[in-house]
Amino acid sequence: MNPVNYLYLAALLFTIGAAGVLIRRNAIVVFMCIELMLNACNLAFVVFSRMHGNLDGQIIAFFTMVVAAAEVVVGLAIIVSIFRTRHTASVDDASLMKL
């Protein structure tokens, strides 16, 4: 199968993720969309790795997964903490960090 199709898939997934981040208000959903975007990128890396015949892309995909795992830990902790204090998971309600 033509690897370019995987790239289309990756672009589609990224777009869905980005749209979800921008449109959805629930912090958990936004968070999942971010994961979606990261994994779309991972997919693209792996495809490029395959196309170019070297392992650089796959290694970067691993790095991304490691960083994403760490980010999930921190991000979920923040979301839980916000939910506990404000009783809501809407990202628009956490808008105090402004001038």
């Binding site: 990202v91 628009d92 808008s95 105090l96 402004k98 001038l99």
Partner: peptide
């Protein structure tokens, strides 16, 4: 320019995008 700093994470996300 300060108007852009509205505290809404999603608008920052739009700007980054």
């Amino acid at each position: 320019l300060r108007q852009a700093q509205n505290g809404f994470a999603r608008s920052y996300a739009v700007q980054m995008l």
